[in-house]
Design a protein around this nucleic acid. Structure first.
Lengths: 140, 140
DNA sequence: TTCTTTTTGTTAGCCGTCTAAATAATAACA
DNA sequence: TGTTATTATTTAGACGGCTAACAAAAAGAA
């Protein structure tokens, strides 16, 4: 009969919201919204991926990726090209403006990550990572 | 230059999504959506709270609480009553149907919490809780 | 008393997320 | 060949979440 605030599930939810709020504030200066940088991370690593592949990398359903891609396209950061060999397939490429965001976004994330694990020793950080991996496996 | 998947921030996001998906699946059988049960938890503890108070308990902005309350009202689980002494203030009360959900929702959460911390010893669970509290403080 | 400020709540509009259903094109089979 | 099944993507519509702007009521000040 624990109060809801003591559940780890509740704690995770609160942390997620706080983390997103921090990310939103920092990404806003770059004209991005939280989550969009995830897609860009994948594209900086490899262009020409399909919406489905991107969705899988992000752990998201295809319609979610579609919507995010529409907004990124409208923002002029990516472009769609239909695959010449299979007209069902769409391939996503970065525009110049999309490529230019790599460094500043990386800095935002590194800064946020540092803040997230502040006051934790390297040992504790490794431990947290391991425990979260177990939780992740439990919920998959 | 870590891949994004190795960031703790990314791990937290994935865990949150997995956790929400599990909660959604279980709550769906009760006619609820993820997050709504949080509001109900507060009301089961104390009725007559105002939207602002509820938002604060949930760590959410007032407009978010307003929307959730509208949906819960439409679903017949809560009702609004204007405070007789101060017409600005709205007080939220449960309906019979809202009260009836306490036990089944609690069971859903206990079950999900057990799954979340499965394969973790009591020591590890306490450790995880402590580390998450630190992360939470870092991001606040 | 009347005007201004503060407080409370809601509306509007955006984004991420989901499921279910529609669309379109390729593949497979009879 | 023509019909059916499968695959890739998008659309529609719901929900949680946010900020900014609005409305209404109470409190305070002149």
């Amino acid at each position: 009969m624990l109060p809801i605030q003591d559940y780890i599930g509740f704690q995770l939810l609160q942390i997620h919201r706080a983390h997103r709020a921090r990310a939103e504030a920092a990404l806003q200066k770059l004209g991005l919204h939280t989550g969009q940088e995830m897609l860009l991370f994948q594209l900086w690593k490899e262009e020409g991926m399909t919406p489905s592949q991107l969705a899988a990398c992000l752990g998201v359903e295809p319609p979610t990726a579609t919507k995010m891609l529409q907004r990124l396209e409208r923002a002029g950061l990516i472009e769609r090209r239909t695959d010449p060999e299979d007209a069902r397939i769409v391939r996503i490429y970065l525009t110049e403006r999309g490529r230019a965001l790599e460094r500043p976004v990386l800095e935002v994330w590194q800064h946020l990550e540092a803040r997230t694990v502040a006051n934790l020793s390297p040992t504790e950080q490794a431990l947290l990572r391991r425990l979260l991996m177990q939780v992740s496996a439990n919920l998959s």
